[in-house]
Design a protein around this nucleic acid. Structure first.
Lengths: 116, 116
DNA sequence: CGAACAGTACGACGACGGTCGAACTTTCAG
DNA sequence: CTGAAAGTTCGACCGTCGTCGTACTGTTCG
């Protein structure tokens, strides 16, 4: 087996997606996966974000995101690679991924014009 | 005073919006407000949804939604009217409101002819 | 085979957040 | 001015969920 079960995109509800994305760690993770753009080792992606959590916790978050239809998991030998379900998510919830790419654009309005 | 302070739409982050919409009661409330389409008494809107919670809890939820930039509150004599910030939300997060209008379209896929 | 590694499954713990009730504020009606 | 009605604020309770550690599964390589 080289694939892990995931829900069909039509069966995914916005309720579940919102709950999945409400957690700051998962949101950071999704953004990192979005920036990565391709199959990546989940542990590596998380490490690059600076977030430090146990591997069991990471496994939990990945499962939540997968059950929410946001990511896909592929088995590659001894490790698992993850990837955003770009096309599926965009088809089911157009504009969602674009929203997530505007994380703190609010600072541009609240803070001073010149950055350090 | 006939208006209640609310954040400028540019200062609203998707993080806060996601947290606000992650709660089932608030999500139901937003959908009801969306269907209402105009200034409405919050208590009435909630009552019509069938959700029964205390008025202090409702007040709390309204505050969360208002701080998230999703709704606007107007004082009308002895009571407060609420309304979705359609234009602002659509401008800042295009497609978000449309997503919320697809609540359980998943049933169309799950309730297949060959159900257990 | 068996050791090492990557990830999952399972409880258990702790904090955040939704809920409520009571007291307080504000507004309108007599 | 007094009373009632609608909301807010505050404090407390408690269930949910994120977190961790340990044990377990499965895979690769000596």
């Amino acid at each position: 087996m080289t694939e892990v079960i995931e829900p069909a995109i039509e069966t995914v509800t916005i309720d579940v997606v919102l709950s999945a994305l409400a957690d700051p760690v998962r949101l950071t993770f999704v953004r990192a996966l979005d920036a990565a753009g391709d199959w990546t080792c989940g542990s590596d992606v998380l490490r690059d974000t600076g977030v430090t959590i146990g591997k069991s916790t990471l496994s939990h978050h990945i499962k939540v995101l997968r059950d929410a239809g946001l990511i896909r998991t592929r088995v590659d030998g001894i490790r698992r690679l993850v990837r955003l379900r770009y096309e599926d998510v965009e088809q089911r919830f157009p504009g969602l991924l674009t929203m997530l790419r505007t994380p703190d654009s609010a600072r541009a309005a609240t803070e001073t014009p010149f950055e350090a």
